[in-house]
């Protein structure tokens, strides 16, 4: 008798396991909340304020997707992930999407089985030096001691760059940004190298930022973007086109302020198609017609999100650079809403 109870239990567990999830979109709708993996704290990209509200450039992407799917930009459960566990958290289904300043690389896309749904920030590895070092270019760094985070792509990029230019350097391995700052400020290294956006943020927190400068050279390509699990194309499409809607909105001049006016109908058919007053693009995505309006209503278009979190008016003070629209000499470009 006991054995049958035991077998019954196992069978019951099996049945429960069989109730597999249909698609991520349905799961998110059923949960009523989007589980979005973010950084445990990266200036300008993701960090909670004193009241525990998450804010940042990556965070706003999560909010935009939540607004598109659930109609509420606050219906997000932010899951802070260290760089070590971010990929397993995504592939095991603990989160629905990852927006954690993750570089789009061949192996992550192909081998790890993720789908990158676009690029929201084009970063690259840069160098910071003290001005009194008298260096104006990275090509003059021969023989320098360089602070570098271990186990990252920056380490490899640095080795590549110095080898290509026939220079030598003395690496000072460090664990994280906070430690790097201490080492650099105490003079343990002449140069600190990491992603240019992080360098700018670090420099902004110095007592005398003007004594330090970023060298003009960018030695690697770090396209950062949101990603989802491979094999769930409808869900990937939603994340991809949410990002595209933010970018297209900037291109077409749709802002948070004039959104209502634009949504009433305009002379530009692409705006009308995107905002749902013409055509049935929302329906094709499995959403309603107003989805893009909600996306833009959360934090504005791409440019507005950029300015609010990392733009020149903030402490981090990044210029648009590569992240300007293609019409303004940058790389930010989307396929058309048609």
């Amino acid at each position: 008798m006991k054995k049958s109870v035991l077998l019954g239990t196992i069978a019951a567990m099996g049945v429960m396991a069989g109730v597999a999830s249909a698609g991520t979109l349905d799961d998110v709708k059923a949960n009523g909340v989007l589980k979005c993996g973010v950084s445990t704290g990266l200036v300008g990209f993701a960090a909670p304020d004193a009241n525990g509200n998450w804010e940042g450039f990556d965070v706003d992407i999560c909010r935009a997707v939540a607004a598109a799917v659930l109609g509420d930009g606050d219906a997000v459960q932010f899951v802070p992930l260290s760089s070590k566990v971010r990929f397993t958290a995504l592939s095991s289904g603990e989160i629905d999407m990852l927006a954690r300043n993750t570089t789009w690389t061949f192996s992550r896309d192909v081998d790890l089985g993720f789908t990158f749904t676009g690029v929201n920030y084009y970063d690259g590895q840069g160098f910071m030096v003290r001005k009194d070092l008298g260096v104006a270019s990275a090509t003059e760094l021969d023989g320098a001691t360089i602070c570098i985070t271990t186990g990252t792509t920056t380490e490899l990029n640095l080795a590549d760059y110095f080898r290509t230019n026939g220079m030598s350097y003395e690496p000072v391995p460090i664990e994280n940004n906070a430690e790097a700052m201490q080492q650099y400020l105490s003079g343990a290294c002449d140069v600190y190298t990491t992603d240019a956006s992080a360098l700018a943020a670090t420099r902004a927190s110095f007592e005398t930022p003007d004594d330090h400068m970023l060298l003009p050279e960018i030695v690697s390509k770090e396209p950062l973007g949101p990603l989802v699990r491979e094999g769930d194309e409808p869900w990937g499409d939603i994340v991809r086109w949410t990002l595209n809607a933010l970018i297209t909105a900037e291109e077409l001049g749709v802002t948070k302020a004039n959104l209502e006016e634009m949504a009433a109908g305009t002379d530009n058919p692409e705006i009308n198609r995107m905002l749902g007053t013409e055509g049935n693009l929302g329906e094709m995505l499995g959403l309603d017609a107003d989805w893009a309006q909600r996306v833009i209503a959360v934090g504005g278009n791409y440019g507005e999100i950029f300015e609010a979190n990392i733009g020149e008016s903030t402490a981090i003070g990044l210029s648009r650079g590569l992240n300007a629209l293609w019409t303004q000499g940058g790389l930010i470009y989307t396929p058309p809403f048609r």
Binding site: S39, T40, G41, L42, V43, G44, F45, A46, A47, P48, D49, V79, P80, L81, S82, K84, V85, A89, N176, N177, A178, M181, Q182, A201, T202, A204, S205, F206, T314, A315, I316
Partner: peptide, 25 residues
């Protein structure tokens, strides 16, 4: 804190990630 739970040590990193307190150790 290594697996992303925000205990006091994990929170230090998070607080350093805010624009106001970046750089405090």
């Amino acid at each position: 804190s290594v697996i992303g739970l925000l205990d006091p040590v994990g929170l230090i990193r998070t607080i350093q990630g805010s624009a106001e307190w970046n750089g405090l150790v």
